[in-house]
Design a binder for these strands. Structure first.
Lengths: 338, 338
DNA sequence: TTTATTTACGTAAACGTTTTCAGTAAATGG
DNA sequence: CCATTTACTGAAAACGTTTACGTAAATAAA
């Protein structure tokens, strides 16, 4: 079976390839009658343009790369949803890459993407990332990048985040208002922008209420679930005065539930918990978890839109800008006043 | 700044483009010394081959397309994880497309993918899909497709699924053993393979225990959450004899919890619930939800591997085959015997 | 009428890579 | 010593598109 490409269409219609190409692009240089003939045959033969030939020639791929730590975190699932929505509206395609929070993998992915496979990148940096040379190398390669959620302050570009500092502050204050005096912070990572901001909010809220910071009460994620729970168990046993937990990432809140159960600490009577989470079903938890819920879908969509808007210009330079979409504290029973 | 491509490398090294290309592919037709020179300069200039030129010439994109209903369903998140893992190991890329269970969107996506953007497709069909002409058109276009989870029996290709029939049977039998006599089935869709299989398992289990089928007790998903809950509420009120619920998709189990709470039906005392779910945190539910847990990650990885293996041959024909990975019933309190 | 301008199409180059085909020089075999 | 192979390299075509340029005819302006 002969392939159906422009050449084939041109032959069957006794036209040149150029005219066929132009007809399909609805160019004004082609008569209405010819356009109609071309379109009819293209439809009949189910012509589909070769994306690679087109990309090669136009030097643009109509594709954006999404580089994220993991897709099992519900935040990123929702964000992908928003990204796909925006991309589809602009006829763009979405390539997904997972770093698994591994710096080396992130470097390899970014390096590869410089080959022109994508026109732009949406990035949420890996927690293992400290050196950012690979990200900086994108600018000279003319590949714009928009950070979402986990940003990289050293790079001048567009960021879309949520109000992490305020959320950390608010969560902490919420626990204080509920009567907590010794609040632990289960921290996503102090290497990440979001981790630092949430931690700072936590610290400032304590200070505002006259409580001294206590490094002993801050537990960063080890990326190993069993290990996390062990550290937390050890902490709760060593510090029976802990009466509040602020988990700055979903899975740590879940771990906190498990450990509290195991140790017989009642929630919220003995320990009150607030956690970042985008899981709808937290309302079914026992007890329902008070959450900081991020506008994940909107964050993804907004980041994609900014990127896509920039890509429509010939020289996609992204001005430094920060879009902040607010998270929401949803109060449930896990932090109710005893 | 001059672009760094094969031409540039060739010029700087006083070699032909052909030799540079061959050197980078470690061809035996190039001397070791030349290879070394080429590699050194390529590394120094951070040469990255243009993926589109390469794809165009070789007529293969090193990319697979993943077409799924939604990414917010945890099953698909986990599956993507497995797919990405397999793809990365084979140096393949992953394009994501969401159908949102909309047939028209699925058709458009598939049609577009015939343009050569992907070498193969992993597909989990939309619940709205009845006509499968668009899928059938992939074979003549030489694009292999592997179904996972939601298969299309009419198409002769590889399928990767879980043992849906047995799971439906097992879940129902589990509820019967726990003392239920009137078991409702909240069905994902009777248009989907998985829906039909789970429903058949449910029916057969009832029959095996001498219970007549009751169409009144089967509620298919309406894809509208509020509407689902309304129908369920109405059902539970109309049929106070219902003492067991089998939800063949996660979000319907969650809805069942909400409605039961609202109506004051105690779980598991009044109504016992079993649901398909891949959410880890169901163990924190009140009460913890008994689940059928699918090996989602493995299903994705296996489907991807089968596809990738086929793509390595020059003429990727996938023999009809069905790989079945077993789901697991994890018993928790929501189905405990009163 | 002559000269611009517009309309509609064709020719051919280009995008960056891979690969076929030749070609040269050196090495090997008889 | 000639014939043949081997080792390396280059020229050029090809993949399917887009687009700058050219051109002929038709129309408008003079």
């Amino acid at each position: 079976m002969k392939p159906v490409n422009l050449k084939r269409l041109a032959e069957e219609l006794n036209l040149s390839i150029a005219t066929v190409s132009r007809a399909l692009q609805d160019s004004h240089e082609v008569s209405a009658a010819t356009k109609e003939r071309v379109r009819a045959l293209a439809a009949a033969l189910h012509y589909e343009p070769n994306a690679y030939a087109s990309s090669l020639r136009r030097n643009q791929s109509k594709t954006i790369g999404v580089v994220i730590p993991k897709v099992t975190n519900h935040f990123f699932s929702l964000a992908i949803n928003g990204i796909e929505e925006a991309a589809r509206q602009s006829n763009y395609h979405v390539l997904i890459y997972l770093t698994h929070d591994d710096h080396a993998r992130e470097v390899a992915i970014i390096q590869h993407l410089k080959g022109g496979r994508v026109d732009g990148i949406l990035l949420s940096v890996a927690s293992g990332t400290e050196d950012i040379a690979h990200i900086q190398s994108l600018a000279p390669a003319n590949i714009p990048v928009v950070f979402f959620d986990r940003v990289c302050a050293e790079i001048a570009t567009a960021n879309v985040t949520t109000n992490d500092y305020e959320s950390g502050y608010q969560a902490t204050e919420h626990l204080l208002a509920a009567g907590c005096h010794h609040i632990a912070h289960l921290l996503i990572s102090n290497n990440l922008s979001i981790g630092r901001n949430r931690q700072q909010g936590y610290l400032d809220a304590l200070q505002a209420h006259g409580l001294p910071p206590d490094a002993d009460l801050v537990l960063p994620d080890t990326t190993n679930r069993a290990h996390n729970e062990e550290l937390l168990r050890e902490l709760l046993q060593r510090r029976p005065d802990i009466d509040g937990i602020f988990a700055s990432v979903e899975h740590l809140a879940v771990s906190a539930y498990h450990v509290c159960r195991e140790l017989g600490r009642r929630i919220p009577e003995d320990v009150k918990i607030v956690g970042f989470s985008n899981l709808e079903s937290v309302s079914l938890f026992d007890p329902p978890l008070t959450t900081i819920t991020q506008p994940a879908h909107d964050i993804g969509r907004e980041a994609a839109r900014i990127l896509l808007r920039a890509l429509e210009k010939k020289r996609p330079i992204l001005p430094s800008q920060s879009v902040v979409l607010n998270s929401e504290l949803v109060q449930r029973r896990s932090s109710e006043q005893g």
